[in-house]
């Protein structure tokens, strides 16, 4: 579980929105190389942090039954960098969710100042994943992940009511 780019959730409303924080520290190895003598958090990892915040929001909305895969970065723009000692917070909001996919909008704050926008799309890869050669078990929300999630679930997870569901089309295949 090394590839986790958020430290904890401070808010989590099921099917609606979530806020996660990431404290940037000079002990992190990547900052030695990005860049030598000038450590700044790579924007690609800020996108990853938002993808994890929003991806867990999407996964939780369907009871973590689906593999939730980042499918598209709809928009990503930043006006500033985070450096060691800074605290990033990722504010993700669910825009749409269906059986096939979900769209989220997100704002990135640097020490409570807005510095970026990251809007994403996720694919749900459930039972159909096996047909595409993917593992039949949930390889995104693993047992180890679920144990971690349970630790911060109490106290921050609330429900916003039932999420949107797919509506069947009138014509038949």
């Amino acid at each position: 579980m090394r590839w986790i780019w958020i430290d904890k959730f401070t808010e989590f409303v099921s099917g609606s929105h979530a806020v996660a924080v990431k404290n940037v520290t000079l002990a992190e190895e990547f900052l030695q190389d990005h860049f030598p003598g000038y450590p700044v958090m790579p924007p690609s990892l800020v996108i990853e942090g938002m993808a994890q915040t929003a991806g867990i929001l999407v996964g939780e909305a369907r009871g973590f039954r689906e593999n939730v895969i980042l499918a598209k970065i709809r928009e990503a723009q930043f006006s500033d960098y985070a450096v060691p000692g800074d605290r990033l917070s990722y504010h993700a909001r669910m825009e749409s969710i269906t059986d096939a996919a979900a769209a989220t909008v997100g704002e990135v704050l640097l020490n409570d100042r807005a510095i970026g926008q990251v809007n994403l799309m996720f694919s749900h890869v459930g039972q159909s994943g096996a047909a595409m050669g993917l593992p039949s078990h949930n390889f995104v929300f693993t047992e180890q992940f679920m144990r971690l999630f349970e630790r911060f679930r109490d106290g921050v997870v609330a429900s916003a009511g039932p999420s949107d569901v797919d509506r069947a089309a009138s014509c038949q295949p």
Binding site: D99, D166, A168, A169, S170, C171
Partner: peptide, 8 residues
């Protein structure tokens, strides 16, 4: 837009 209505 119901599933399959625009792109069936």
């Amino acid at each position: 837009i119901p599933k399959g209505e625009l792109f069936p």
